[in-house]
Design a protein around this nucleic acid. Structure first.
Lengths: 272, 272
DNA sequence: CGGGTGAGGATTCTGTAGAATCTATTGCTA
DNA sequence: TAGCAATAGATTCTACAGAATCCTCACCCG
């Protein structure tokens, strides 16, 4: 009795079930099937995925580590509430890292792949009147490809993995913001992004690290500007379970800040 | 029958046991009680902490999220093997973020706290001949305080939490490196750090963002240079459980890179 | 008399323990 | 060396204990 909501086949081998559930829940957040503030109940998810609640719990812990949900002790998991401030802050950090990566990638990056990407971008930007889902999908795919190519070519594996994490986080934040505004799939924005991407690629082709970094900075800035418009200014705690009262927030959450707090305590005790 | 190795009291309320275990294991890594490549067996840890293996498993998942251990599907957890390259890469990213944070903190940071910190640093650097553990402890405490103060004053909570994460990661990497070289507690290095810290504080007091950033950059660079000396150049896979063969690495680990891979897959399927 | 308030039990859900199952590895044998 | 049994250990399931929340109802105040 598999729920039709289950995104993809989660019939994985023993030992990879948690990962599979993490991936599935992540894509649920990306696709807007899970919305900000929503309460995730382990038993529901367990029956939905046809497993016991143990691997579900473990997946939720991993998701909390990624920063997509909050884990409140004894009170379960909620999809993270997002404010414009959160998106802005994540993007500031992301901009910093992306600019560094593109600077470092300049000169190392494979020229053939760059040329191919420039070609794709040009043909994409030629289809100005195309507003089909295929167009959006193609643009998104190229977006991912370009950022991945830069990350892979920056000569620093750790930086690459951090960029990946932030890209994911950004998408999660952005897509969770659909809870407030159905402005997704804005064709104009997608077209704008294509031009910004092209500028980055051309700077890389010209071996101009400075300009590449600037282009990347502009690209991310305009992304923030665009997406943060449709998000409320401050996060207002609320649970959409069945319309409860708002008396939450008593204990600290298990989200990154709280994890940091744990680490903090540890470090305090670290110098005996 | 509590094991004497258990770092701190882990008699916590229901629902906070995992966090407590995470903290305890982290400090075990920091203190060198857990060494690179060591195999963590859930049942051993369970009896050591006097709990069932369930919260232990969950703590290991959280630790893998932090990046301190690797989780190999069906084969358990090992303390992450570290190469000089890893440390260098983490530090490059950390330098980037710390410099940005100190730039942003310039002007916002509380002057009183800065002055107090300068005072502590000066008195510390006056004790040139002191090589006692107390001296080391004091220097470390101030190190933490300064970086925390900057993070807290940078006006970007997310950046602050990322810095915290990297600081933790850096310590874990550095301290795991003791597995190779017992060069810990090098007094000369600690004294050098004190001077570097003082330079940062003075630039902040002078409201000179550029110089503060440069001082921070120098500080972290010299840290890398120092610590990466005592670490092997490349990570050579090996398990110190009972002397196994080296045929690992067949499946991907659950460490950040692999997590990114999961996310990657998810994103690939993301644009329907 | 109506609406608000608080106590206390019922319910739902989380967290932990322990049992059962599966996987990987080791050691033995041919 | 290949194949196979034995074992250690990881993963998952089931069951139960504890915490939080919800619901009901009696009581109080306007």
């Amino acid at each position: 009795m598999l729920d039709p909501l289950v995104s993809s086949a989660v019939r994985f081998d023993r030992g990879e079930r948690r990962q599979a559930i993490v991936g599935s829940l992540l894509s649920d957040v990306f696709a807007g099937r899970l919305r900000a503030g929503q309460h995730l109940v382990t038993q529901d998810l367990a029956s939905r995925y046809g497993v016991s609640h143990t691997p579900i719990r473990e997946a939720l812990i991993a998701l909390a580590g990624i920063g997509v949900i909050d884990l409140l002790p004894n009170r379960g998991a909620i999809v993270r509430q997002v404010s414009a401030k959160d998106v802005r802050e994540v993007c500031q950090v992301r901009r910093l890292l992306e600019c560094e990566a593109v600077r470092r990638a300049c000169g190392r990056i494979d020229r053939g792949q760059l040329l191919a990407m420039a070609e794709s971008l040009r043909s994409l930007s030629a289809r100005t009147s195309d507003e089909s889902p295929q167009f959006i999908a193609a643009a998104r795919a190229i977006d991912s490809q370009l950022h991945d190519l830069i990350a892979a070519s920056c000569g620093n594996d750790f930086l690459a993995s951090e960029l990946n994490r932030l890209k994911t986080l950004f998408r999660a934040l952005r897509d969770v913001s659909w809870a407030y505004d159905e402005a997704r799939n804005d064709y104009r924005r997608v077209a704008g992004e294509t031009h910004e991407h092209l500028a980055i690629v051309e700077a890389l082709l010209a071996n101009d690290a400075r300009e590449a970094s600037l282009a990347m900075s502009r690209h991310i800035r305009s992304g923030v500007k665009y997406w943060s418009r449709s998000i409320p200014a401050a996060s207002h705690p609320q649970i959409s379970h069945n319309g409860q009262h708002g008396k939450r927030d008593r204990r600290s959450a298990n989200c990154p800040p709280a994890l940091s707090a744990t680490i903090e305590r540890t470090i305090q005790e670290d110098s005996p």
